[in-house]
């Protein structure tokens, strides 16, 4: 079954690459015009296009690209001639590092908050957590980022406002530089996961077997952790995974505010300049992220559910 899903995933990747290619082609202008801008002349544009093979018909360029990528060659950036694998490598590492760092803070935090909120439903604690997390998700990310910078960088002077890491940056230095962006992303994703955890557990609390557990005189913590939570994993895992995917593909604003060299900035620049091979490579990575993470979510929900694990 996993093999079938993977096969479908590859098909999706192919479709994504075709759609993105056509999409960028449909955008007005091309790389030569975007780079030369106001300084373009018909003659230099023609020379530029010839050098980059942009004068070829688009189906030939797409097939060439596809042929190369099947051999694992992402090609070179049209704009500066650098190897895309090299261009993306460092940035993908940066993006994954930030996503992982934020997830390490956000996932345990939101699960804990959610479970506690379910345990103490309708208490002052429950309301306070809901208000705080829902407010933080309601503000735009850049606003949260600016507030954090204002407090922690400008007023207190504890944390840097620039997260300009390079491959040589040592691990702990990197953690320090990334505290503010990770905190921003945490504030953005916590509400969704927390609310889902709370809702999934509360949903189960009305079931007869929980009532039975309560009647047996179990403590509230035991009822929730041992009886409700195992059955609530499936929806929780799905929401966690969606948020993980968001942490990887949707953080361009946070990257801009903290000047963090991740993939988001790369794809925005490349779309603006119509650098198709780079756009393609980035979108393939983003699409693959969604496919792999969704597959993981499905596998995890099956693993946590014995009925699905041993189908009749």
């Amino acid at each position: 079954m996993v093999a079938q899903r993977l096969g479908l995933g590859l098909l999706v990747l192919l479709a994504v690459s075709l759609i993105i290619f056509l999409g960028v082609e449909l955008l007005p202008g091309d790389l030569a015009q975007a780079i030369l801008g106001q300084a373009a002349t018909p003659e230099t544009l023609a020379a530029f296009r010839k050098e980059l093979r942009l004068d070829l018909p688009m189906h030939i360029r797409y097939l060439e690209w596809l042929f190369n990528i099947l051999q694992g060659d992402f090609g070179r950036s049209l704009a500066n001639g650098r190897e895309i694998s090299e261009l993306i490598g460092v940035r993908l590492g940066n993006t994954l590092f930030l996503a992982l760092f934020s997830a390490v803070i956000a996932v345990p935090l939101s699960l804990t908050l959610g479970i506690l909120a379910a345990m103490y439903r309708n208490s002052w604690y429950d309301r306070a957590v809901n208000i705080v997390t829902l407010s933080s998700i309601s503000f735009p990310e850049f606003f949260i980022a600016y507030i954090l910078i204002f407090v922690f960088s400008i007023n207190l002077g504890w944390l840097p406002s620039l997260s300009n890491v390079s491959p040589e940056t040592p691990f702990w230095q990197r953690i320090f530089l990334l505290l503010l962006p990770a905190l921003t992303l945490t504030l953005v994703v916590v509400a969704h996961m927390m609310r889902m955890t709370r809702a999934a557990i509360i949903n189960l609390l009305a079931s007869p077997y929980i009532e039975m557990a309560n009647l047996k005189g179990m403590s509230r913590a035991r009822v929730i952790l041992h009886h409700a939570l195992p059955n609530a994993w499936a929806p929780i895992v799905n929401v966690v995974v969606i948020n993980l995917a968001y942490l990887i593909v949707g953080v361009v604003i946070v990257e801009v505010v903290f000047v963090y060299p991740g993939l988001g900035q790369l794809i925005v620049d490349s779309v603006q300049k119509r650098d198709i091979p780079v756009v393609q490579a980035c979108s393939i990575i983003f699409a693959a992220t969604y496919i792999v993470l969704n597959l993981t979510a499905d596998i995890l929900s099956i693993v946590t559910n014995p009925r699905l694990l041993h189908p009749r």
């Binding site: 910078i149 960088s153 400008i154 801009v256 505010v257 000047v259």
Partner: peptide
């Protein structure tokens, strides 16, 4: 030379002494 396209981020970097 650090590229900081967001003007608020550029200003913050200067006022906090990063640039």
């Amino acid at each position: 030379i650090v590229v900081i396209s967001d003007v608020a981020a550029r200003t913050n970097a200067l006022t906090t002494g990063a640039t």
